[in-house]
Simulated scan of single mutants.
Amino acid sequence: MPTSSGKTPPTRMSNVLLLLMLCKTGARSKRQPSPGTMVNTVYNDEERGIQDKESKEESILAMLGIIGTILNLLVIIFVYIYTTL
Rank of each mutant, 00 (worst) to 15 (best):
V16S: 15
T8G: 03
S55F: 02
Q51I: 03
D52I: 14
D45L: 13
V42G: 06
G6Y: 02
I76H: 00
L19F: 08
Y82S: 14
Y82R: 14
L22Y: 01
P2F: 05
G49P: 00
Y80K: 08
I81D: 01
E47R: 11
A62Q: 13
I81Y: 08
M13D: 12
T83H: 12
L64A: 09
L20A: 15
V75E: 04
L61S: 11
T8M: 10
Q32L: 10
L22W: 01
G6P: 00
M21D: 08
I66N: 06
Q51L: 13
K53A: 12
S34H: 04
I81E: 08
T37F: 01
T11Q: 15
K53L: 12
Y80F: 14
E58N: 11
T37N: 04
L18H: 06
Q32Y: 01
L64S: 12
I60C: 03
G6L: 04
F78H: 06
A27M: 07
R31G: 03
P33Y: 01
I66W: 01
M13I: 05
T69R: 09
V16D: 12
Y80W: 10
S59G: 03
C23G: 12
T37P: 00
T8S: 07
A62P: 02
S14M: 11
M63L: 13
T11H: 15
N15A: 09
S55N: 13
T69I: 13
I76P: 00
S4I: 09
Y82V: 15
I50L: 06
S14T: 14
N40V: 03
V79M: 14
Y43I: 05
R12W: 05
G68E: 00
D45K: 15
S59T: 14
I70K: 00
L74N: 03
S5L: 12
R31A: 11
G36N: 00
M38D: 05
T84N: 09
S4A: 15
M1I: 10
I66E: 08
G49N: 08
L18K: 11
S29H: 06
G49L: 04
E46K: 13
V75K: 05
P35K: 08
R31L: 14
I50H: 07
L18N: 11
L18M: 08
K53E: 13
N40Y: 02
G36E: 01
I77D: 04
P10H: 01
N15D: 07
R28D: 11
N40K: 03
S4K: 13
I81N: 09
E54C: 02
L73Q: 06
L73T: 12
M38V: 04
R31K: 15
A27R: 05
Y43V: 08
T3F: 07
N40G: 01
S59H: 10
K53I: 09
G49V: 00
T69E: 06
D52H: 10
L22Q: 02
I76M: 03
T69L: 13
S5M: 10
I66S: 07
L73I: 15
L71I: 14
S34Q: 07
V39Y: 04
I60F: 02
L73K: 10
R48T: 03
L19C: 13
A27G: 05
V42W: 06
T84P: 00
E46R: 12
N72D: 03
P9C: 10
P2Y: 01
L19R: 09
P33Q: 02
M1A: 14
